[in-house]
Amino acid sequence: MNDAVNRTAGNTVTRWPVSDAAAGAILTVDLVAIRENYRRLKAKLAGVRCAGVLKANGYGLGAAQVAEALASEGCDIFFVALLAEGIDLRRAVGAGPEIYVLNGLPPGSEPEAVAARLCAVINSAGQLKAWREAARGAGRALPAAIQADSGMSRLGMAPAEVAALAGDAGAFDGIDVRYVMSHLACADEPRHPANEQQRLAFERLRAMLPRAPASLANSSGIFLGSSYHYDLARPGAALYGINPTPGEPNPMLPVVRLQAKVAQTRSVEKGAGIGYGHTYHAQGPLSLATISFGYADGWLRRSASAAWFDGVRLPFLGRVSMDSIILDISALPPGRLHEGDLVELLGPSQSVDDAAGHAGTIGYEILASLGSRFHRRYVNE
């Protein structure tokens, strides 16, 4: 296991505590599992190219480390959400991979994208014009993916914009159109009619755009079948162990384990108020443990959940605090849990999707919320 670092231009810059002794919690990221998840998705795609989505710092797990793991499996196309993410990733991975900026480039930022050799995802006629002018200034064609809105109403050119561009012979001058793409809104619901409606809309829209390889499938979209695969799939969540087929067994390996340290143990009598607001009162004598972990570390305050130790469930009591959570450890033998011991929050006893269910959210939010105060370990072997 390695301490987490960010490698930039040959330098090693420490981003998290060097020693687990300095941190209140430990986050272990299994890069071997990420590589296996990528292989499983590639097998499902049966020869179609597979990118890796690394937005939000690799879903909170470390974009540079995840990119290195995916590159070892032959992945050479990455997607991020923001220009700043793309610049950081380019510094980490070097000149080789293609890096696409999903949200498009903010007005005036095109020179930065050109300097970092990033590929724009063009979502509007205005962005297309700005990228065309950037190409003129650079004296060369600039790479891009053209995104059309096939029915999600979030990002991408509206059908009317696409139709207008179809009649403009010079619209794509100076643009190296590498992909035409769109994004599925309901892929995690395989029987939702919007999936087929979007696929058909995408067919109509791409027929009006420059001939180029096509991309539609996200993680769940890969499991909708080959008609959604086209030439490039763009999985994100599935790489990180989130179930792309909700309601069915997870075809992906778990990737993260999150453990928090016990800061203190105590015994309380019946009637004792517990935590902020005294939202819970002891119904009888209880043994408690306070762990060094809270909503500042990304554990949602509304989450009614538990930790585990020796396979025993230890329920949360009272409210989640900024830096601490109180556990009921009465089910453990007296004296079994000590200060400095680690309890498990994510891992074999509770998956990311389980934790999301307790919090009334999705696994994406659980991972993306994880904070920076952890000691991070990366399993490479």
Rank of each mutant, 00 (worst) to 15 (best):
364 Y>P: 00
282 A>T: 12
29 V>C: 10
148 A>L: 03
222 I>N: 08
101 V>R: 01
47 G>L: 09
358 H>C: 10
364 Y>E: 15
274 I>Q: 01
34 I>A: 06
74 G>F: 10
131 W>K: 07
275 G>V: 10
6 N>S: 14
101 V>T: 11
249 P>T: 07
301 R>G: 14
165 L>T: 11
252 M>C: 14
26 I>D: 15
127 Q>S: 08
85 E>T: 07
119 C>G: 15
353 D>W: 01
194 A>G: 00
62 G>T: 11
215 S>W: 09
110 E>G: 06
41 L>V: 15
157 M>L: 14
82 L>I: 01
140 R>K: 14
338 H>W: 02
235 P>E: 07
247 G>R: 04
85 E>R: 06
68 E>R: 13
305 S>N: 10
29 V>N: 05
74 G>A: 09
37 N>R: 08
176 D>K: 03
177 V>S: 09
7 R>Y: 11
38 Y>S: 12
288 L>D: 11
94 G>Q: 08
73 E>K: 03
51 A>D: 14
379 V>D: 09
121 V>E: 13
185 A>W: 01
348 P>D: 15
152 M>L: 12
294 G>M: 10
59 Y>K: 11
326 I>T: 15
310 D>V: 05
16 W>V: 12
139 G>D: 09
57 N>M: 03
241 G>Q: 09
155 L>G: 06
171 A>W: 06
175 I>R: 02
162 V>L: 09
265 T>Q: 00
334 P>R: 07
77 I>H: 03
375 H>E: 13
147 Q>Y: 01
330 S>D: 07
21 A>T: 14
261 K>M: 05
45 L>P: 00
203 E>K: 05
136 R>G: 14
242 I>T: 08
100 Y>F: 15
61 L>Y: 00
108 G>E: 13
182 S>F: 06
213 P>D: 12
353 D>F: 02
22 A>V: 04
137 G>Y: 00
380 N>S: 14
232 L>F: 04
61 L>W: 03
179 Y>S: 01
123 N>H: 03
68 E>G: 09
59 Y>H: 13
11 N>M: 14
210 P>H: 03
361 T>I: 05
230 Y>N: 07
376 R>P: 06
212 A>S: 11
39 R>P: 12
380 N>H: 08
159 P>M: 13
310 D>P: 00
41 L>T: 14
211 R>D: 15
134 A>Y: 05
288 L>V: 07
216 L>C: 05
156 G>S: 07
165 L>Y: 06
135 A>L: 02
104 G>F: 09
10 G>L: 12
375 H>C: 12
16 W>M: 12
304 A>C: 10
180 V>K: 00
242 I>E: 12
132 R>N: 06
372 S>F: 07
375 H>Q: 06
189 E>S: 13
201 A>W: 01
202 F>E: 13
99 I>C: 08
311 G>M: 08
149 D>W: 02
231 D>F: 02
344 E>T: 13
69 A>F: 05
291 I>D: 01
224 L>V: 11
314 L>P: 02
113 A>F: 01
141 A>C: 08
